[in-house]
Computed example of a mutant assay.
Amino acid sequence: MDCTGNTSLLLDREVNDPKENQPFVFGQGFGGITDIEVGLDGYMYVLSYTGSLFRIVPSSSATTAANTTSGSTNLANSGTGTEEGFQTEQSEDENDQSAAQNGNSVPAVILGLYGDKSYSPNPITIERGQTITWYNGDTISHSVTSGLDNDDDAGEVFDSKAIIPNHYYSIRFDDAGEYPYYCFYHPSMVGEVIVE
């Protein structure tokens, strides 16, 4: 199994920060797990409480495996919606996440509880019609919520709701302007989008 991420953090063989174990997350969305076994084909199999069977394969062959593993379920839980001047998408499915990061999408990362350095880059400057895709690189859930804490209209322009770790939220900005935003759960986390 290929692990992605900065594995050099674990050279000391100690997890000193919860973020250090992120490269070793091999899957999620199983629900309650009742059994994990290595099959004769060398792949790891996970049996969930509901009776669904998942085969864990390297990411390069994940699409093929998803199509051939019997008993597996689709973990996608995508929601899309449109608001005036915006198009939003939050996805838990890897294929949908890749689609959200098309050539016109600007990537951003949610780093954690670091005040105005919680979102990177900050500010984000884009042109009208471009999409920003925020990836939650922290170990806890965060949000991308328009406005600032205690604003009467906070969250009215856009609101990702909870973005769980290793998941994405995308929104297309069609109108020029400056859009401050923050994390609903951790109001000290602030960022800004500038649309030219």
Results as ranks from 00 to 15, higher is better:
Met1Arg: 10
Asp2Met: 11
Asp2Phe: 14
Thr4Leu: 11
Asn6Asp: 15
Asn6Tyr: 15
Thr7Met: 11
Thr7Phe: 07
Leu10Val: 02
Asp12Cys: 01
Asp12Trp: 03
Asn16Gly: 07
Asp17Lys: 12
Pro18Leu: 08
Lys19Met: 13
Lys19Pro: 02
Glu20Asp: 12
Gln22Asp: 14
Pro23Gln: 14
Pro23Lys: 11
Pro23Leu: 11
Phe24Thr: 08
Phe26His: 09
Gln28Trp: 12
Gly29Met: 10
Phe30Arg: 05
Gly32Ile: 02
Glu37Lys: 04
Val38Cys: 04
Val38Trp: 04
Gly39Thr: 02
Gly39Phe: 06
Leu40Asn: 03
Leu40Gly: 05
Gly42Lys: 13
Tyr43Gln: 09
Val46Thr: 04
Val46Pro: 02
Leu47Asn: 07
Ser48Met: 04
Thr50Cys: 00
Thr50Arg: 04
Phe54Leu: 01
Arg55Met: 09
Ile56Gln: 08
Pro58Leu: 04
Ser59Phe: 12
Ala62Val: 14
Thr63Cys: 04
Ala65Leu: 02
Asn67Pro: 00
Asn67Ala: 10
Ser70Phe: 05
Gly71Ile: 05
Gly71Gln: 01
Thr73Val: 04
Asn74Arg: 09
Leu75Asn: 08
Ala76Leu: 05
Asn77Gln: 14
Asn77Trp: 13
Gly79Phe: 12
Thr80Cys: 12
Thr80Asp: 14
Thr80Asn: 14
Glu83Asp: 13
Glu83Ala: 14
Glu84His: 10
Phe86Lys: 13
Thr88Pro: 05
Glu89Ala: 14
Gln90Gly: 05
Gln90Lys: 12
Gln90Tyr: 10
Ser91Trp: 06
Ser91Gly: 06
Asp93Arg: 08
Asp93Ser: 13
Asp96Val: 07
Gln97Trp: 09
Ser98Cys: 01
Ser98Trp: 04
Ala99Glu: 10
Ala99Phe: 10
Gln101Tyr: 07
Asn102Phe: 08
Asn104His: 04
Asn104Leu: 03
Ala108Trp: 03
Val109His: 08
Leu111Cys: 08
Leu113Val: 02
Leu113Met: 01
Leu113Lys: 06
Asp116Trp: 03
Lys117Asn: 15
Lys117Gly: 13
Pro121His: 10
Pro123Lys: 15
Ile126Cys: 06
Ile126Phe: 07
Gly129Arg: 11
Gln130Val: 14
Thr131Asp: 03
Thr131Cys: 08
Ile132Gln: 00
Thr133Gly: 06
Asn136Leu: 03
Asp138Ala: 12
Asp138Arg: 07
Thr139Leu: 07
Ile140Thr: 10
Ser143Ala: 09
Leu148Glu: 03
Gly155Glu: 04
Gly155Cys: 07
Glu156Tyr: 12
Val157Met: 15
Phe158Lys: 06
Ser160Ile: 01
Ser160Leu: 00
Ala162Asp: 08
Pro165Phe: 11
Asn166Ala: 10
Asp174Thr: 12
Tyr179Trp: 10
Pro180Gly: 06
Tyr182Thr: 00
Cys183Trp: 03
Phe184Thr: 02
Pro187Tyr: 09
Val190Phe: 04
Val190Ile: 09
Gly191Asn: 06
Glu192Thr: 15
Val193Leu: 11
Val193Asn: 08
Val195Tyr: 13
Glu196Gln: 15
